[in-house]
């Protein structure tokens, strides 16, 4: 008996459900026909890490401090660096990233002192073997490296000059101050003596 009563109830709930699906039928599709169309990537989206160009250098500004390599929980970064002539800090000779290991945690971006790490825009890099996910981040910058080094050297030289100039200025100022102090000191002594006497 119960099951008989269920029939009209069931039919009603079925029709109501159909009503909902029919309404959906006339709505705009929500899917994107990948790969013919590509979904937009959020600006903050995390992908493989890359070195970002710094305008004032014309290249990346990695100083091979190895902080990112040290903090990476997945050990996917390997860097070696050396100091080129005429520059106060190091530049990387090798910057390899194994994206297959990367957990996109963003810790390396947090620690980078020169803010030179960022995320790439490619979100569907696929490969046939594990080697396909190993990226050499310096590859894109190799031909610009010479120029960048030039800029950096120039900057270093200017800095040095500035420092030299500052040092000289400071020395002069010091000498002046010392001379003044000497003069003031004498006066101080006089007034000091005066107060003590009174």
């Amino acid at each position: 008996m119960q099951s008989l009563l269920d029939i009209p109830r069931g039919a009603r709930s079925l029709l109501k459900g159909m009503g909902v699906t029919i309404r959906h039928f006339f709505r705009k599709p929500v899917t994107v026909e990948y790969p013919r169309k590509r979904a937009p990537v959020a600006k903050a989206h995390r992908n493989a890490i890359v070195l970002i160009e710094k305008d004032d250098i014309g290249s990346h500004n990695c100083i091979a401090c190895l902080q990112c390599e040290k903090i990476c929980p997945s050990a996917c970064i390997s860097i070696t660096g050396s100091r080129p002539d005429g520059i106060a800090f190091k530049r990387p000779d090798k910057f390899d990233v194994d994206f297959a290991l990367c957990s996109d945690c963003g810790l390396c971006l947090d620690v980078c002192p020169t803010d030179t790490l960022g995320y790439s825009e490619v979100y569907d890099a696929a490969g046939y073997s594990r080697a396909d996910s190993k990226f050499d981040l310096l590859e894109a910058w190799r031909d610009k490296e010479g120029e960048a080094l030039g800029t950096l050297r120039e900057r270093e030289r200017k800095k040095k000059e500035e420092r030299e100039a500052k040092r000289k200025a400071a020395e002069e100022a010091k000498a002046k101050a010392a001379a003044k102090e000497k003069a003031e000191g004498k006066e101080d002594d006089k007034t000091g003596n005066g107060t003590a006497a009174s």
């Binding site: 959906h24 959020a42 903050a44 989206h45 996109d104 810790l107």
Partner: peptide, 28 residues
């Protein structure tokens, strides 16, 4: 059918979170 509708709504949330966290599922 409800599975697809849920997925649609869930996708909406993932997009919102993607904008700020940078990930869709395994947030850090």
């Amino acid at each position: 059918t409800p599975f697809l509708y849920c997925w649609d709504d869930r996708e909406n949330i993932l997009d919102i979170l993607d904008e700020v966290t940078g990930s869709r599922l395994t947030y850090c």
